[in-house]
């Protein structure tokens, strides 16, 4: 059991927290037909951290978080600008902006001497969840031991704070979020700042993505923004329950994916673990597939939105 606490507890917790932090805003993005914003944000995290590295010369947490967060906001503003100024449909505007920013990130990275620091594209894409171990722990008792707790990987408290912040924001702003997602025009007549709500949601998604990416990589981020909320939508017709289902699915994906990645190959006679991030995304996809086939509310009933 000691080995579990030392090697698996923290990655598991970080995976679960990252999955939940992304799934929460994902519910609203899904209903607003903005599901792919998560995809765009997670791509532009790379140029953000590269620029932060170029500016500060170090790979430390805060500059990287700020760089990534700044890049996410730049991307969202650019997408909006391209969409409005060029009168281009949102999908295409997104495609133009995030590919260009990602390309710029790769180019900068290639041009920069990053020998000696751990910064590369693969890492940004699929992280290294498995490496976030808690070496100073020697059993469950360590959870109460301040010395051992000081040795926790810093990603854990960071991810926990981000997840708590997003859960809190979702709770506090539940009504305006639901209202403006369902009927933006009506929300505006109530005096709700609909544009600010819309931007706030994307910023919250960016916070989740940025906090999650260096622990678990972009690929989980994109999967968790979309798959658990999408599967949850097929389980219920009430938003409150949909969000609860999405949290459950996110947790299940993270736990099952982590376990399968670590032990699955051993059960199949292999010798090495496979990518936990990849497996978590895969499991979330399997859950979504099952929901598509069996979910009680999988079929469309309402009249589709016109225009």
């Amino acid at each position: 059991m000691n080995a579990f606490v030392q090697l698996d507890l923290t990655p598991l917790l970080i995976g679960v927290l990252a999955a939940i932090a992304c799934a929460l805003p994902g519910n609203f993005l899904l209903l607003r037909r903005q599901a792919l914003i998560g995809d765009a944000i997670s791509h532009v995290v790379l140029p953000g951290i590269v620029v932060a590295f170029l500016v500060t010369g170090t790979i430390t947490t805060w500059p990287m978080m700020l760089g990534a967060g700044g890049a996410a906001i730049v991307a969202v503003v650019l997408i909006e600008a391209v969409r409005r100024l060029g009168r281009i449909e949102p999908g295409a505007a997104m495609g133009v902006v995030f590919t260009a920013m990602f390309a710029a990130g790769v180019l900068l990275l290639e041009q920069t001497d990053t020998s000696g620091v751990h910064i590369d594209v693969e890492h940004a894409l699929y992280g290294s969840l498995e490496s976030l171990i808690w070496l100073s722990a020697d059993g469950w008792g360590s959870l109460l031991d301040p010395v051992a707790l000081a040795g926790l990987p810093p990603e854990l408290p960071r991810m926990a704070a981000a997840a708590a912040l997003i859960a809190l924001l979702t709770g506090v702003f539940w009504r305006p979020l639901k209202l403006s997602t369902f009927d933006e025009g009506f929300a505006a007549t109530l005096g709700l700042p609909v544009a600010a709500i819309s931007l706030g949601l994307v910023v919250a998604a960016a916070v989740a993505a940025v906090a999650a990416f260096d622990a678990v990589g972009s690929i989980i981020v994109i999967a968790m923004f979309i798959c658990p909320p999408a599967a949850a939508r097929l389980m219920t017709n009430r938003l409150e329950r949909q969000v609860a289902w999405s949290v459950a699915f996110a947790t299940l994906s993270a736990v099952l994916g982590y376990v399968l990645a670590g032990w699955g190959p051993l059960w199949l006679g292999g010798t090495h673990a496979v990518s936990a991030a990849g497996m978590i995304a895969t499991v979330s996809g399997v859950i979504l597939a099952l929901a598509c086939l069996l979910g009680p509310h999988r079929a469309r009933v309402g009249a589709a939105r016109e225009a």
């Binding site: 899904l30 699929y126 690929i219 990518s275 990849g278 995304a281 996809g285 979504l288 598509c292 079929a299």
Partner: peptide, 28 residues
Amino acid sequence: RRTRLPEDAAIGAVLSVFFGFGIVLLTV
């Protein structure tokens, strides 16, 4: 076509899940 999910969600789901599975295969 078959579920109530819109196309953008379908795109995002397929994109991330296939990519994640691909990464699993690369580590294999």
